[in-house]
């Protein structure tokens, strides 16, 4: 790991007496695909919101893309991309209009927008789809488009919140190829997922239980440590210890 782009120490978020995220510490390097696992209610979403600069930590410290999570939330936002499980483009706008909107939000110049749009269309092999309404695209296309739009401004880190929910296996495969390409180009990918086969694709994986990180290593090392056949087994062994419910 040559260069860290995310580094957090004892990051904690309380809602009243409830410690949603309870002192998590980890580093993520450039170009890594970092799997962020945890059952529902384990605190994944809260942790991710803090890293995205949406929510201010109660205590602890950390930097994302070189900016302080406590004080520089707005600057973090400029250097990250985000795609959520819920489809996040506008159905009633065309593919091009969606791209233009995001280019505008991230302040890309006209020339940059044109160049990146052309690259994006070439990579996704979009032709007549360009001027179609996004709502008319098949789900797999939408998902890939949403990912490409989230990385349009070449962010240092892209956060993916369960990006492949409800997508067929073939499309998921293609989606992960996109993720690999992006990571190879130097963008760090921070991804949460419920599919344990996807966890196997990650460079490193962390498992959150009850607001704390219980395990963090490469998938191979985790399987060795827990004497498990698959990441699915590892996850089940860890999640069993959970005290708080859904």
């Amino acid at each position: 790991m040559n260069e860290t782009v995310i580094s957090v120490r004892n990051l904690t978020k309380c809602f009243g007496n409830f410690r949603a995220v309870d002192g998590i510490t980890f580093d993520v390097g450039r170009g890594e695909i970092f799997g962020f696992l945890g059952a529902n209610g384990a605190g994944k979403t809260t942790a991710m919101r803090m890293l995205c600069g949406l929510s201010c930590p109660t205590s602890g410290s950390g930097t994302v893309a070189g900016f302080d999570v406590l004080r520089e939330g707005e600057r973090i936002k400029r250097h990250i991309g985000y795609m959520s499980q819920r489809f996040s483009l506008y159905d009633d706008l065309t593919v091009l209009e969606n791209i233009r909107l995001y280019a505008g939000i991230y302040g890309l110049s006209h020339r940059q927008t044109l160049r990146r749009t052309a690259e994006l269309f070439a990579r996704l092999d979009f032709r007549k789809e360009r001027s179609q309404l996004v709502g008319a695209l098949p789900l797999g296309y939408k998902q890939k488009l949403a990912f490409s739009v989230a990385t349009l401004h070449s962010p240092e880190i892209v956060f993916l919140d369960e990006p492949t929910g409800g997508v067929d296996p073939l499309t998921r495969r293609q989606f992960w190829e996109l993720i690999y390409e992006t990571a190879a180009a130097g963008t760090t990918v921070f991804v949460t997922t419920h599919y344990m086969d996807e966890a196997e694709y990650c460079s490193r994986v962390s498992v959150m239980v009850d607001g704390q990180i219980r395990a963090l290593d490469t998938p191979a090392a985790l399987k060795r440590r827990f004497c498990a056949e698959s990441m699915d087994e590892v996850f089940r062994l860890l999640a069993r210890e959970a005290k708080r419910g859904d």
């Binding site: 936002k77 985000y82 795609m83 959520s84 819920r86 996040s88 939000i105």
Partner: peptide, 13 residues
Amino acid sequence: ENGTMEVLLVSPV
């Protein structure tokens, strides 16, 4: 409801 607000909030706008 559509979840697009979330994406906008993560953006620098």
